[in-house]
Write a protein that binds this DNA or RNA. Structure first.
Lengths: 405, 405
DNA sequence: AGTAAATATTTTACCGACTGAAATAAATAT
DNA sequence: ATATTTATTTCAGTCGGTAAAATATTTACT
C-alpha cells in the first residue's frame, strides 16, 4: 500500500499546490473554494481535490458559518474553509543564554501553554542541550495534563549559524561543540519530528504565518532584543543566503571606523543600537554608573536627562539609516520591526521614520510600509513554533500523497 | 493545429525543465545527456525528450567531438550537446545620455557586430525613442549585409525604473514622458519581439548567461560607470524588488548626514565613489580646475599627487564598506564587480579587499569570492542582448509546446 | 408551491510531463 | 565474433492538473 510505483517528481517540489492552498487559507482565515481557485489562478477542480486531501489530513475543515457571495444573492452559497487548529499541537522553544522559553501552539497559532526554565549552564554539550529541551517540553505538557507524546512537532530556535535543512548547527552560543548534526540526537530523545533554526529566521516565519506578514510575498523582519537581527522573506520563502548564516543586519557598517562592536569590528549598527551600546555610552560618559537596562535610559530621558535623550536619539538616527539601506537594497513590500520585551520606542519615533523616508531613493511608488510589532516575551518561542507548524504541514501533506493507495 | 485542448498548467511555470536543460547546457558549454540528468536530478528519459525538443527548436545541437566518460573506457560514448549559436541573432541596445550602443550577438553570446550612435537629443518622446532604436538597428545590420528582419529579438537597457514584465517604463532619463507602455510601440516598429529593462539588471543577466556568474545561483553584480549600480540574482532568478525599481546600491547611506549626492540626499555611497564625486573633490579642494575624468585623477595619483591618492583612497574605503554590507545582508556565493570603461582599480585594491574582509561577520565558511570583470564598453549592450537571448529562448520553447500537434 | 436562474462544487474524461524498466545503440575487451 | 559496458531511446504507467459536464443549493419569480 505504501510501496506505490509512483514517480516522486521531486520531493521538494511535490504537493506545492496543496501547500499553497493551505497557506492561502491560513492567510485569509476563512475562504471558499472558488475564491481560492481565483486567488491561486487554478481551476476549481484542483481546489476541490486539494481541499479534500487537506481535510482528510486534519489540517483544515469546513465552517458552519457562510459568507455571502460578493455581488450576487442567489446561487449555491460558498462553503468557507478554515484551519482545523485543534487537531495538532506544536511546541516552539527558544534557547537563550540563561533561559529556555517553551510555548505550545495549536495549528492556528493560538497559545495553549507556555513556560520558562532557567538554565544553570549556559553552554551545554549537544546531549545536555537535547535533554534540557526534553525536560522543558515534559514540564510544559504537564501543565495542561498532557504528555509529550501529544506533540505533532517541536521546533527550536537558537542564536547562531544553523543549516535548517539538515538540523545542523555550525555554531551557537548555547552549545559547546561546533558543527553538530542534531537530526539523530533529536529523533532519539523526542517522540516527534523536531527542527532547529536561527532565531531571527523563525520570527520571520511567525510574522508570515500569523503575524503582520500574513499573505505578503516580500518582506523583512527586523528583530530587536539585545542586538538587532534580520529575517528575509522573498517570494514567500525564507531567504537564508548561500552559507545559511542569515543576514547580519546588526553588523552592517553605518560609520567608517566607527564605534567598537562586541564582534570586534568597528561601525556596526549594533554598536550604536544594541542595548550594551546604549548602556556603555551612559556609563562611560561620566556621572552614571552601571545602568541596569535600556528602559532606565528611557526613564531618564523622559525625566529630562539630556544625555539619555541624546544617546537614544543617536541610536534612532543610526537605526533609521540602516533601515533606509535595507529598503534601498531589498525594495520590500513591508518592513516589520518586531520586538520582544526591550523598550524600543526610540527606534520608531517620528524622527526616525522621517529619517528613513529621507534616506530612501524616491520613486513613483509609495514607500514600503513599516509596521511595528510588540510581541511580548513569547516572540522567540512563537517564532520557533511557527516554523514547526509549517514543517509539520509539509510532512502531513507528504504522508497523504504516500498513503494514497 | 494550434488550438490544442491542452491544459496550460501555468504559462509561467510551463516548460521549466526544458529551460533548465537549456541553461545547464549554456553554463557547461558542452555536456552529455546523462550528465544533464545527473546534474538536474532528473531521469535520462526526460532529458532525451527535452533535448529532442530543444534541437528541433534550433536552440542546441549535438557536437561531433566526443568526450570520454570519466571512469570507463568502453560502453556507448556520450554525445555532447552544445548551444546552436548560429541559428538566431539577437540585438542588445543601451541607451545612455548621449549615445546608443548596439551589439549583435549570436545565441552563444559571440559578438557579430557592434556600433555606436550619437544622440542629438538626450530626452526623446517615446515615439522618437523607438525610431532611434530602429535606425540604430538597421544601420548595425547593414554592417553585416543583413536586414533588421534577421533578428530573432531585441532588448533595450535604459537607466531608470522599468517593469520588465510589461515593457513598461515608469521613468527613464532618456525619455520625456513618464509611465510609458512600450509593448505596442515596439511591436509596431520592430519586426521581432522586443524587451526593455533596467541596465544594471541586464548586466547581471549577462554575467549569469556568459560572464563570471555562469552557473551560479546567488550572486550580486555591482556595476561601475558614472554611478554605482546593483543587479541581484537569487535562486537563479533576477530579483527586482517589490516596486521593480531595482536595488539602489549607489544610494545606500555610508555616512550619517554625509556628502551631498546628485539625488539630493546626503551620505550616499555614490557621493563618495561616483565619478562626479571624485571630480568634485579634486576641483573644489583647491589648486586643480575641472578635471576631465577619473583616469586623470589616477594619473595624478600615480605621479605622486597626495590629494589625488587621498581622494581615491577614501572612495575605496567607502566602497569596501558598502560591499561588506552587501555581503552581510545577502550572503551571496559571489560578488562580481563589473566595469565598462571607467578606471576603477582604486575600488579593487588590496586595501579595499582587506577592508571588505574585515567588515564581514566571520563564520566558518569562507568569504564570498569577489570577481572583477573589465568588460570594455560593450558591457551594457551585451547585458541587454543577454536578456534578449533568455527571453527568446523562453518564447521558442513555448512555441514548441504550442506546435506539438 | 413550483419552476427558472444563478452560483458553487464535484465528477468525468483526458492531457502532458515525468518516471522506471526494458529495449536498443555503440563502443571496448577478450 | 562475442561478451561486456555504458548511453540513449522507447514504452507503459503514474500523477497533478484541466475543461466541460453534471450535480447541488440557493434565490427570484410566477
Amino acid at each position: 500500500m505504501l510501496k506505490s510505483k509512483a514517480s516522486p517528481v521531486s520531493l521538494e517540489q511535490r504537493n506545492t499546490t496543496r501547500l499553497r492552498v493551505l497557506e492561502h487559507i491560513r492567510a485569509k482565515g476563512a475562504v471558499s473554494r472558488i475564491d481560492i481557485a481565483t486567488a491561486l489562478q487554478t481551476s476549481p477542480a484542483t481546489v476541490t481535490a486539494a481541499t479534500a486531501d487537506l481535510i482528510s489530513a486534519g489540517l483544515i475543515k469546513e465552517t458552519e458559518s457562510q459568507a455571502q457571495s460578493k455581488s450576487a444573492k442567489r446561487g449555491r452559497p460558498r462553503v468557507l474553509l478554515q484551519l482545523d487548529g485543534q487537531r495538532h499541537l506544536v511546541a516552539g522553544l527558544k534557547v537563550a543564554r540563561q533561559v529556555i522559553s517553551v510555548i505550545l501552539l495549536d495549528f492556528e497559532g493560538n497559545e495553549i501553554a507556555s513556560h520558562k526554565f532557567t538554565l544553570e549552564n549556559p553552554r551545554m554539550s549537544p546531549q545536555e542541550f537535547v535533554l534540557a529541551i526534553r525536560n522543558a517540553l515534559k514540564e510544559t505538557c504537564n501543565q495542561i495534563d498532557r504528555s509529550i507524546a501529544c506533540l505533532a512537532g517541536v521546533s527550536i530556535g537558537v542564536a547562531g549559524l544553523v543549516d535548517a535543512n539538515r538540523n545542523f548547527v555550525h555554531w551557537s552560543s548555547s552549545i559547546k561543540d561546533s558543527n553538530v548534526d542534531f537530526s539523530q540526537l533529536l529523533s532519539n530523545e523526542l517522540p516527534c519530528p523536531a527542527f532547529v533554526d536561527n532565531d531571527a529566521n523563525l520570527v520571520a516565519k511567525a510574522e508570515q504565518l500569523f503575524g503582520l506578514g500574513k499573505g505578503l510575498k516580500n518582506f523583512l523582519v527586523v528583530t530587536i532584543e539585545h542586538g538587532v537581527g534580520l529575517g528575509i522573506v522573498l517570494d514567500g520563502k525564507l531567504y537564508r543566503g548561500e552559507r545559511g548564516c542569515g543576514a547580519e543586519f546588526g553588523h552592517t557598517k553605518v560609520q567608517l571606523d566607527g564605534a567598537l562592536c562586541q564582534c570586534g569590528q568597528r561601525g556596526c549598527l549594533e554598536a550604536y543600537v544594541g542595548d550594551y551600546a546604549l548602556i556603555r555610552e551612559m556609563t562611560v560618559s561620566g556621572q552614571i554608573n552601571r545602568m541596569a537596562s535600556v528602559s532606565d535610559i528611557h526613564d531618564r530621558a523622559k525625566s529630562g536627562d539630556d544625555r539619555a535623550s541624546s544617546v537614544l536619539a543617536r541610536a534612532g538616527q543610526m537605526f533609521g539609516l540602516g533601515i533606509s539601506n535595507l529598503i534601498n537594497l531589498y525594495d520590500p513590500e513591508c518592513i516589520i520591526v518586531s520586538g520582544a520585551q526591550m523598550s524600543f520606542e526610540h527606534l520608531c519615533s517620528d524622527e526616525v521614520m522621517e529619517r528613513i523616508r529621507n534616506g530612501v531613493v524616491k520613486v513613483d511608488a509609495p514607500l514600503p510600509e513599516i509596521r511595528i510589532h510588540h510581541w511580548g516575551d513569547t516572540m522567540w518561542a512563537k517564532g520557533a513554533a511557527a516554523y514547526g507548524i509549517e514543517q509539520i504541514s509539509i510532512l502531513k501533506v507528504r504522508e497523504l500523497a504516500a498513503n494514497a493507495s
